[in-house]
Every structure is written in structure tokens, then in C-alpha cells.
Design a binder for these strands. Structure first.
Lengths: 155, 155
DNA sequence: GCCCGTTTTCGGAAGTTTCTGAATGGCGAC
DNA sequence: GTCGCCATTCAGAAACTTCCGAAAACGGGC
């Protein structure tokens, strides 16, 4: 197996993992392609060919990944195609979506508490849930701050 | 709408949210039922009735939730049914599964790096991915430690 | 303003997941 | 040892995702 095929294989493995973790399958494959390519940027057509997928589905995946903030468009003068590349902080952004999850869980717990009587077991459970997510809600952004600081001082 | 119905509604909302975040639908509904019930523990039959679902699917959901460590069996002398309840640290355990995700992402990045030439853009990208997940891999357990400490000193 | 290359959207097909209902298996009481 | 109740497993049905391919929409260049 050529080195290039080996990497393509690794890319597909990673894509499978990402989709296990909840990313849409095609988005995952596109992500993996961006990670492993030697080119500085990729176009929709290149991706569709590389992944042997329709341009339609690649277009959808690109849209999603841009929305999540993992990709950015690269201006390439003289080319009418859109060129895309991974953002440096793509993974941080991906993980940051946890923030939103945490926030929603906290909010749900809060609502539950508000609707529950004073001395109820349900309320206690909801309070425990709230406490945990509230902790995470406070701490995760600080964690990211530390990451950026570390990252900045290195690179 | 009665207070009880309002809570049942809230429970279903929460279940929907959990399933948005990747939890299986029935597992999510079961979780929500455990959160909002006033009873100290629930049996399979009670859950199936409350959720208007088959015992089969509830059984599957219970199995999953026990594996994740969010539920525990409660010994109830004189009852031949299994009684289940939420673990106090259920949410922490749920979130802890991120650890495994992070570990796998780190490992995948590592493999990619090993298979990539010295001066390649792909390697740089993989290294950035590795650095981020490695940071998380180190820091998340510490975060949980701090949570447990805080929790312990409160409760 | 028109043309051509590129991207996005959309309907339908294929695949995957999830639920149910019934049968099987297991365990305690007597 | 047998009975009766509970829990689990499994095959099939239903629902939902995801993908493709075609057609519409978009946008520069001239």
C-alpha cells in the first residue's frame, strides 16, 4: 500500500470515529480530508472527487462545517471556485460546542427546580444536576482561556 | 394542566434535549423519568407504564444506563422486581465519557503524525489537533477532581 | 445584459436506527 | 421440582437519516 493510500485509510478511520461521536458522516469525511491533505486549501470539486461523493452532499457538509466554525474560506485571486481550509482553532471550536450543551442542561435543570416543590426528591436530583453543569459552565471557558494562553506562548 | 402533567412535559423536553446531544431516545426518556419522579426508585414495569413504552425497550435503555454508570440497582427486600435509581454522580459520569472521546482523538492524531513526512502541512494540522486534545486529556480529569472536592465540601 | 462555470437546493431512494410484541430464560416461593 | 412472575433477547416493522443526481440559483467576466 502506498503512503498516500495509507493516509487515505487513516483519514477514513478518523472520519468513522468522528461520526461515532455524533458528527454527520459526510461532514466527518470532509474534515478528515482537510486534515490529511497536503494542499493548503481544497475546493468542492476536489473534495467530491477525493471522497468519491456527490458535489451535493459535499456542499451540505461544507455548509455545516463553516457554521460550526471549523473551516474558513480562503481568497484565491483568479479562481472562481471557493477554496476552503481548516481553521487553526478548528478543534477548540468543535469542542466549544460543549459549552452550549452544558448551558442548555443547566437551564433545563433550573426550569425543573422552579416547577418542583420544596421538599421533593425530584428537586434534590435536579439540584445536583444543576450544580454539576453550573460548575462546568463556569470552568470550561476558563479551561479554554488557559489553552489559548498556552497555545499563544508556544506558537 | 396539572402540576404533574407540567413536570411530565418538562421531562419529555429534557429527554428530547438529551437525545439531541447523542443519547438514545429511549435512554433519554428513562433518564428524564428518573430525574422527575417523586419515588425513590423505579422498576421496569413502572417505567414502561409511565413512558408508555414496551418493557423490551425500557429494558434495553436500563441496560445502557447502567453500563454508563448513571443508574444503580437498589436492594428492596421483599420485592422481586429490580429497583433502579439515579446515582448521585450520574451527570459527572455521563460527562466523563468525553474523556474517552478525547483520548481517541489524541490517539488518532498521533497515528496521523507518525505516518506523515517531516515538513508537511498535514503534519502541522495533525500536530495542532494533537496538542489540543492532549491538553484536554490532561486537564479534564483535574477538572473533575476539583468538582468532586467542591461537591464533597458542600454535601 | 448574457453566458458559463460553480454552488446550492430538493425529491426520492437506500440505509440505518429504534421500537414493539412475543418468545425465551432465570429466579424465588412454596 | 414446579409454578408464577419478571427481565431479557430477538425478529420484524416503522420511522428517521443521509446520500445521490438533477435542476435551479448564483455570480463574475465580458
Amino acid at each position: 500500500m502506498s503512503a498516500q493510500n495509507a493516509q487515505r485509510h487513516q483519514a477514513e478511520e478518523l472520519a468513522l470515529m468522528l461520526s461515532d461521536f455524533g458528527m454527520q458522516r459526510m461532514s466527518a469525511r470532509v474534515m478528515a480530508a482537510f486534515l490529511f491533505t497536503e494542499k493548503p486549501s481544497l475546493t468542492l470539486g476536489e473534495l467530491a472527487e477525493e471522497l468519491d461523493a456527490s458535489q451535493g452532499s459535499v456542499s451540505g457538509a461544507l455548509k455545516t462545517l463553516h457554521q460550526v466554525g471549523m473551516l474558513e474560506r480562503v481568497p484565491v485571486p483568479g479562481s472562481r471556485r471557493d477554496h476552503h481550509r481548516l481553521r487553526r482553532d478548528a478543534w477548540e471550536r468543535l469542542y466549544s460546542r460543549q459549552n452550549e450543551v452544558v448551558r442548555k442542561m443547566m437551564a433545563a435543570a433550573e426550569e425543573g427546580i422552579a416547577a418542583t416543590g420544596e421538599d421533593s426528591p425530584a428537586r434534590e436530583r435536579l439540584q445536583e444536576m444543576y450544580d454539576f453543569y453550573n460548575f462546568m459552565f463556569d470552568e470550561l471557558p476558563l479551561l479554554f482561556d488557559r489553552w489559548r494562553e498556552k497555545r499563544g506562548s508556544q506558537g
